[in-house]
Design a protein around this nucleic acid. Structure first.
Length: 479
RNA sequence: CGGGGCGUAGCGCAGUCUGGUAAGCGCGCCUGGUUCGGGACCAGGAGGUCGGAGGUUCAAAUCCUCUCGCCCCGACCA
C-alpha cells in the first residue's frame, strides 16, 4: 500500500493529484493554472506524440509551425469563434516598452492565423487539399485548472486542412476522428466512443464537431480528442478561395482536429490504481525496468550489472527503441527501488539478483496485477514482449468492461435522474431536445450530452420530450 | 466571478481563540554504522522568522486592515 497516495475510493481528485506527484509527472508552476511537465511526464508526452505524429504522416499530413501571437482583429473575423474564445484569451498589450497599436492574442487555437495564411497559399484547386499539422502550445485562461485536464497553457497538436469539396472535408473530419480513436484504443488502451457533438457542445465556428469520449474510473466522461468540420465558415472569414476546374471561384472547406496533454490525464484516470500510475506498455516510455539486486559490490559489478545491461539492449532491440532502463541506484534498498518504478507505472520490473542468476532465472513482476514469476534467462527476450502485450490488452479490456458496467440504457427522464443520482457513469438514450433542454438536464442532473455515437444512426423516441426522431445520445457528468 | 477552506522547514502538520524563550513534531534530506528480494533501524546533523505589506502594542506566527497565492465546490472549457 502506497503511503503517499490517497486511496481512490476516499478522494478521487486527491488520488489523481497524488499519482501525478508520486510519479513525478508534473508540478505546479509559479503562475496559476500553469504546470511544469517534468521529465517523466514529458517522456510520456513524447511517446504519445510519436504515435500520433506517425499516424498523421501516414495519412499524408505534414508538420509546420505557426506563431504564438495572433492579431486581435483575426479572432474577430469569425463571429462565433470570437464569442467562444474571447473570454479565455490572454492578450499582449505592451511590448518593447510601448503600448501596442493592436493587441496580440496568445493563441487559444490557430484557425485564424492559419486561415489567413491559407488564403495566401491557395489559389487553384491544384493547391488543395492542404494537410498541415502543428505541435504547439496554446493558452486558454482557465478559472479552474487541474493538472493535465485543464491548464491555462497546454501542449497539443492541431491539424488544419483545406479541401475543395464539402464531401472531402467531411471525410477528412471523420478520418481523423477515426485515427484518434484507433490510437487511443490500440496504444493508450482507452476505450473511446466516437461521436458527434450536440449543438451546445460544438467548437465555436464549426458546423459540426466530433469527439472521442472516454470514461474515467470514477464514471465521469472525458473528451479525449476532437475533430471539427468547419464548413466554409473560416474560408469566408479569411477569404480562402480557389478557382475550380471550371474557372469559378469557390470558398474552400476546412477542418481542424486536436489532441492535447489532457490525454495524459485520461491515461492516469483510466488505468492507475492506489499504488500509483499504471501505463499501457505501448505508450510507456519505459516498458521494463531491470534491477540488478545485490549487496556484494564486486559481484554486482562483475556479473549482475553486465547481465542486466545485456538484457536491456537485447530488449531494446527486439521491442524497438530505447524502452528499458537498468536501475543502478544501488544506494537505495530494493524496496525503495521497487516502489519508484511501481509508482511511475513501469509495466514490468525485472529483478536480477544473485539467487536468480544461480537459478538461471529472473524475477519478473507485472505492474497491472502484481503477479511475480521466475522466468528462465534464456526465455526473457521472448517472454517479456508477450507479457507486455498481455498487459496492454488486459488494461484495455478492463477499462472496456468498466465502461460497459457503468453504462446504463434509459428511456425516460426519471430513469436517467435515478441513474445519475445512484450510479453515475454513462447514460445512453434517445434525445431530440433543444439546447435549452440540454441546459435544463444539466442543471437538474449535472450531466451533459457527451456525444451522439456515430455507429448508432438509428432513431428513437426522445427520453426528455417524448418526440420521435431522437438520436442516440450519451449523457454523463464530464471533466 | 460566487460559496467554503488554507498559507508556519522540501512535504504534511501542531502552535493562533486565551500576544510574552514553543519555532515544535512526523516524513524527507546530509554524515556514520548496522541492514538490504515490497517503502529498514540506531546515532549524530543541516534546514523555517511563521505568504506579503501596513497597523495596534513595551512585546505579534498569534490581534486589526489591506494584499497576493493555493485547494475544494459551483458557472465556462482540449
Amino acid at each position: 500500500m502506497a503511503r503517499n497516495i490517497t486511496p481512490r475510493a476516499e478522494d478521487y481528485s486527491q488520488w489523481y493529484l497524488d499519482i501525478i506527484k508520486a510519479a513525478e509527472l508534473a508540478d505546479y508552476a509559479p503562475v496559476r493554472g500553469c504546470m511544469v511537465i517534468r521529465p517523466t511526464g514529458y517522456s510520456l508526452w513524447e511517446s504519445i506524440q510519436h504515435h500520433f505524429d506517425e499516424a498523421f504522416k501516414e495519412t499524408g499530413h505534414v508538420n509546420a509551425y505557426f506563431p504564438l501571437l495572433i492579431p486581435n482583429s483575426f479572432l474577430e473575423k469569425e463571429a462565433e469563434h470570437v464569442e467562444g474564445f474571447a473570454p479565455e484569451c490572454a492578450v499582449v498589450t505592451h511590448a518593447g516598452g510601448e503600448v501596442l497599436e493592436e493587441p496580440l492574442v496568445v493563441r487559444p487555437t490557430s484557425e485564424t492565423v492559419i486561415g489567413h495564411m491559407y488564403s495566401k497559399w491557395i489559389q487553384s484547386w491544384r493547391d488543395l487539399p492542404i494537410l498541415i499539422n502543428q505541435w504547439a502550445n496554446v493558452m486558454r485562461w482557465e478559472k479552474r485548472p487541474r493538472l493535465f485536464l485543464r491548464t491555462s497553457e497546454f501542449l497539443w497538436q492541431e491539424g488544419h486542412t483545406a479541401h475543395s469539396s464539402r464531401e472531402e472535408a467531411m471525410e477528412e473530419t471523420l478520418k481523423m476522428l477515426g485515427v484518434y480513436a484507433r490510437i487511443m484504443r490500440d496504444i493508450l488502451a482507452l476505450p473511446v466512443v466516437e461521436g458527434e457533438k450536440t449543438e451546445g457542445e460544438r467548437f465555436p465556428g464549426a458546423d459540426n464537431t466530433y469527439a472521442c469520449e472516454t470514461m474515467m474510473s470514477d464514471g465521469k466522461a472525458l473528451q479525449a480528442g476532437t475533430s471539427h468540420f468547419l464548413g466554409q465558415n473560416f474560408a469566408r472569414a479569411f477569404d480562402i478561395k480557389f478557382q475550380n476546374q471550371n474557372g469559378d471561384l469557390e470558398y474552400a472547406w476546412t477542418t481542424s482536429w486536436g489532441v492535447s496533454t489532457r490525454l495524459i490525464g485520461a491515461i492516469i484516470m483510466t488505468h492507475s490504481d492506489d499504488d500509483g500510475l499504471v501505463l499501457p506498455p505501448r505508450v510507456a516510455p519505459v516498458k521494463a525496468a531491470i534491477l540488478p539486486i545485490g549487496t556484494n559490490e564486486e559481484k554486482v559489478a562483475s556479473t549482475l550489472l553486465p547481465r542486466a545491461l545485456e538484457l536491456s539492449s537485447e530488449l531494446d532491440r527486439s521491442l524497438g527503441g530505447r524502452c528499458t532502463v537498468v536501475d543502478k541506484q544501488f544506494y537505495l534498498r530494493p524496496g525503495d527501488r521497487f516502489f519508484q518504478h511501481l509508482q511511475r507505472g513501469v509495466p514490468l520490473r525485472v529483478e536480477l539478483g544473485e539467487k536468480d542468476l544461480a537459478a538461471g532465472t529472473a524475477r519478473v513482476v507485472r505492474r497491472d496485477s502484481g503477479e511475480k514469476m521466475d522466468i528462465p534467462l534464456e526465455n526473457l527476450a521472448s517472454r517479456i514482449p508477450e507479457l507486455l502485450e498481455d498487459i496492454q490488452s488486459g488494461l484495455f479490456n478492463r477499462a472496456l468492461d468498466f465502461r460497459r458496467q457503468n453504462t446504463s440504457v434509459v428511456s425516460t427522464y426519471d430513469e436517467m435522474k435515478k441513474v445519475m443520482e445512484e450510479k453515475g457513469g454513462f447514460v445512453e438514450t434517445w434525445f431530440a431536445g433543444t439546447r435549452d433542454d440540454e441546459k435544463k438536464i444539466k442543471e437538474e442532473t449535472g450531466a451533459t450530452a457527451r456525444c451522439m455515437p456515430i455507429d448508432s444512426p438509428e432513431e428513437g423516441p426522445c427520453f426528455f420530450t417524448g418526440k420521435p426522431g431522437g438520436r442516440k445520445v450519451i449523457f454523463a457528468k464530464a471533466y
